[in-house]
Every structure is written in structure tokens, then in C-alpha cells.
Nucleic acid binder design. Structure first.
Lengths: 278, 278
DNA sequence: ATACCCCCTAACGCAACTGGAGGTTCAAGA
DNA sequence: TCTTGAACCTCCAGTTGCGTTAGGGGGTAT
């Protein structure tokens, strides 16, 4: 029977010598040892075991889990259950990875466009993706599934993602700059209008109405979920800026109601001649 | 100014108390401390920092990297470079994850179909996915890119994946059972035919020809890459079984040549009346 | 004799936490 | 005022899957 030294095995399989010794140490793969020299002696059988180990490791099992299956000549349904659990883990990891990649792409886009970027802004963007699942879950307390889907699985929205990020960044910058101006200043009101049109404008009027309802309710009743809100993304503004912005938005909304103009369905076609006051 | 205890912060942000203390210890987030009690006192400012940390961690930066950006009020293009590197890392991870998931799905499929499964078979399947990249790379020594793509990016092949796995599993089982029978036994020859039709049958005749050429060459010349082959997947057979199978296949091939029948293009249309000898 | 391989064991280091022991401090109730 | 229990503190250890020295043995080519 042919035998191999640890170095040969390492070359053959691509597993490092240290790793092989480690597997020996933890009892995962115990080759024979030359009693006089102490050198490890690997057989073909050992190579096969090693390949098994590598397969199961590739699947994502821990060395501890691998040890439980490694000595069985056949695998049965207990492995299947392990694998299904493992598959779910991997799929979770994948979707989390995908969100991370999306977040990083946003961040790169922004850095490219702006050159330099407010750390709070970047944070709020990343966190909004990071906590997307939480946001959805939280919304189920207030909104029906249909409305939530309308917000998050909006195809048109996805296509205009880059634009939206840019306009959001613009908005944040302008708020910083304009903070302190009177809330009824035309520039301030124009900024709010532009921002709302670029974001909310993409949602259908029913969706917007439901969200408006939600906002009304939020201030009046049911603060039971308030704690959960804390886990979500903080805004890229100081407390004072938030207050100022809220006032300015209230003013904008009131004026809207007065003039009787409301959001239009985001349809193709003419996009002018309504409520553009500045 | 409002302040919070470590427990409150933990609840607010979902970060464990232990982790918060750890961040303090490594200097990532150092809240003030009550000098008399030694309790940590977190401010709103600290919460913001913590959110920043969570964002950057989410996109995959290490705590060490985070520390370099955390104290800057704005991020510049050095962050962009970091992010691009990070993005590449994440994408690599993703493709590796995807292969793992694929492998695990194969394995689950097999376990479902068969109930119990030879560990060597499972291993060879997993390893064939695991080393797909290596296989491709290795093949560039022998085959042109076009042929390789024909093998690996074959749409029809992907659709029939499950079937192929099953027929491979069948084949392995039958080899174990039939080992020892004379190589010209009708059952043996039939098994080989069935297997080849279900796998190679999906490739175009040009592709098959090229592979045949490759196999001829492999025995005659250029053993320089032999070592690399070792890294790839071992077969789910014993050495003796491999020898037996090789002989049986040689016999099959010779008979094929004699009768002048060769592989047909895998086109739609009639699939009968050629070389089906059993 | 020396350089250079390959092998050995033993121990430390890593990242980003988590857990436990053993000891304060704080707020509220008896 | 005392006691109880929750919440906090520090310090030390352990986790995974190895990589990386450090220190040494033994064989062979120059």
C-alpha cells in the first residue's frame, strides 16, 4: 500500500500542513505515525477521508459537525436535517450579503457623485437598507401587506434608485445649509416640494394616503411600538434641524390642503401645471 | 442632556451589553464614566457613533478599519477605495456562497431520492461543484475557451441538473453492484450506454470530439499537469472498481467504433434507431 | 562541516465577540 | 434602616480554524 508524508498530502490536496496537523490534533483525521521518527504516515484511505472533510466543510458544516458524520460509510436522513438547517443559514447569509453589497454600491455611488460626504448621511442610507426587514416588520403594525409591498417592491422605484439617493443627498445638504431660514421662505418650501416629488411622487395616491393616515395616527394613539423605532435608522439631522424641518413640512402640508392640491398618480404624461408654487 | 445606562443603550440599539463594553475596551466607543460608581454614561452623541459603527460594520469593514473613519465628520475618497475593495471581497464571498448553496441543494435532493447515500458519492458531487473553478482553469491547458463554455454554461444542462444527478447516483450504485461481472456482460454495457447518453448526450458532437481528443492526448503526452489533477475530485469508486470500469468502457468504445456509430447532436426530433444494442 | 530540506511539538496570536466568577451600586419594598 | 434583587463593574478564559514563530531532530548534497 502506498503511503505519503504530510508534505505530499498537502501538495496533493491543497490543504496546508498546519491544517493537517490540526485535524490530527482534534481527532478529525488521525494518520498512523512512524514510531521511531514520529512522522505522520497517510494512506489512500486517509486521503479519501480528507476529501470527505473538505466536502462537508465546503457545505458550511463546522469541524465538530463533520466529525459526527465522517466515520459513517453512508449518510442518512439525520444528515439531511443538518443540511436543511445549514441551507437556511447559508441563504440567510446570502440575503444579508446581498443587502450589504447593495448598501456598499449606494455608498460608492454617493462618494463618486459628491466627492465628499456627510458621515450621518451615509449612515442613514446604509442603515435604511440594513434595517429594511425590521422596517417592513414594524409597518405590519400599521399598514396592510399590500401597501407595504407597494413601497418596497416598487419596480419603478428600483430603477430610479440612483436618482433617489442623489436627491436625498441633495436634500440633506440643503437642510444643513438652510437651517435657520424662516420656514415659509420660498427656497425652503421649494426644497421640500422638490424632495417630496422625487420620492413620494413615485408612489400611488392610495399608498400615500395610507401613509398620511399612519402619520396622523402615530401622533395620536398607540405608542406601544415606540421602542422598536429606536432600533431603526436615525436621521442625518440634529434634533434642532429635525424640529425646524417638521415645522417647515407642516407649513407645506397646510398650504397644500388649502389650495386643494394633492398628489397625482405617478403616470406617464403631462407633469406640469399643478401646485408648483415657486 | 439626556443620558443612558449601558442596559438602556443595549435595548435601544440591539447591541449586546457585552459588545458595548468590548467596544469601550478597544477604544471604539468610549462613553463617559460616573467617577463614583464606575457606570458607563452614554449620551445621544454616543448613540449616533454607535449607529455609525453598525453601518460600517454592516458593509463589512473590520472594527480596525471602522476606527479610522469613525471620528471623521465627513468621508472622502479614501473611503471609496476601501469600499471598492470591500465590495470585491463581498462579491467573491457571494459567489462562493452560491456554490455552497448549490452543492447543498444537490445533496438534499439526493438524500430525498435515495434515503440513504454513499458518502463517497455525496463527496464526489460536492467536490465537483467546489472545484468547478479549478476544473475550468485546468482545462484551459487542453481545451479552448469555447469548448469549456459549452460544457459549463450549457443551459440545457442546467435545466436537467436534477436528472443528471439522479442518473449519476444510479450509475454509481450500479457500478458497485455489478463490479465483478464480465465487462462484456449485456447489463454492464447497457449501464454504460445509459449513463453516457444521459450525460455526454447533452453536449454537441464537436464538444464531445474535442474531449475525446483530449483523453487520447492525456495518456500519450504532457503529464505536466498531473499534480494539479490530484487537487480535484476523487471518484466514488475503489481503485479496482475504476480499473474494471475503464476496461468496460474501453470495450464499449471499441464496439462503437466497429459498428461505426457515433454521438449525435442533441437536437430535437427523433431519438431512436441508432446504435441501441440492448 | 555545513547548508538545506523535511519533519516534529509546543505555544502564541487573530477577530469579534461570549461567558462566568466575584464584587459594587442602585432603587424599591418591609 | 435593612434587605433584596436587578443592573452594573472588572478581570480572566474560551470560542473557530487555523497562521506563525520558536526550537529541535534527522537525512542528504556539497
Amino acid at each position: 500500500m502506498e503511503t505519503y508524508s504530510i508534505g505530499e498530502i498537502s501538495k496533493k490536496t491543497g490543504v496546508s500542513i498546519r491544517t493537517l496537523r490540526y485535524y490530527d490534533e482534534i481527532g478529525l483525521l488521525r494518520p498512523a505515525k512512524d514510531p521511531s521518527s514520529g512522522h505522520r504516515i497517510y494512506t489512500e484511505e486517509d486521503i479519501l477521508q480528507l476529501h470527505k472533510i473538505m466536502s462537508l466543510k465546503f457545505i458550511g458544516l463546522s469541524l465538530e459537525e463533520i466529525r459526527q458524520y465522517i466515520h459513517q460509510p453512508t449518510y442518512d436522513l439525520t444528515l439531511k436535517e443538518t443540511l436543511i438547517l445549514e441551507k437556511n443559514m447559508l441563504e440567510q447569509k446570502r440575503s444579508q450579503l446581498e443587502r450589504s453589497i447593495q448598501a456598499i454600491e449606494y455608498a460608492i455611488t454617493l462618494l463618486e457623485e459628491e466627492g465628499e460626504i456627510d458621515s450621518l448621511l451615509l449612515m442613514s442610507l446604509i442603515r435604511s437598507i440594513q434595517t429594511e426587514e425590521d422596517q417592513k416588520r414594524l409597518m405590519t403594525h400599521y399598514l396592510d401587506q399590500e401597501t407595504i409591498d407597494a413601497i418596497f417592491h416598487n419596480e419603478e422605484l428600483k430603477q430610479k434608485e440612483k436618482e433617489m439617493i442623489k436627491s436625498y443627498a441633495q436634500f440633506v445638504k440643503q437642510v444643513h445649509e438652510m437651517y435657520g431660514l424662516p420656514i415659509d421662505h420660498p427656497d425652503v418650501q421649494h426644497m421640500i416640494e422638490t424632495f417630496l416629488r422625487s420620492t413620494v411622487g413615485l408612489l400611488s395616491s392610495q399608498t400615500v394616503e395610507k401613509i398620511a393616515d399612519l402619520l396622523n395616527k402615530k401622533t395620536s394613539e398607540s405608542f406601544e411600538w415606540e421602542e422598536e423605532w429606536d432600533v431603526l435608522s436615525p436621521l442625518p439631522f440634529s434634533k434642532e434641524e429635525v424640529q425646524w424641518l417638521e415645522q417647515a413640512m407642516d407649513y407645506y402640508m397646510q398650504r397644500l390642503e388649502h389650495t386643494g392640491i394633492d398628489w397625482e398618480e405617478p403616470q406617464k404624461g403631462e407633469n406640469d401645471g399643478h401646485g408648483k408654487k415657486r
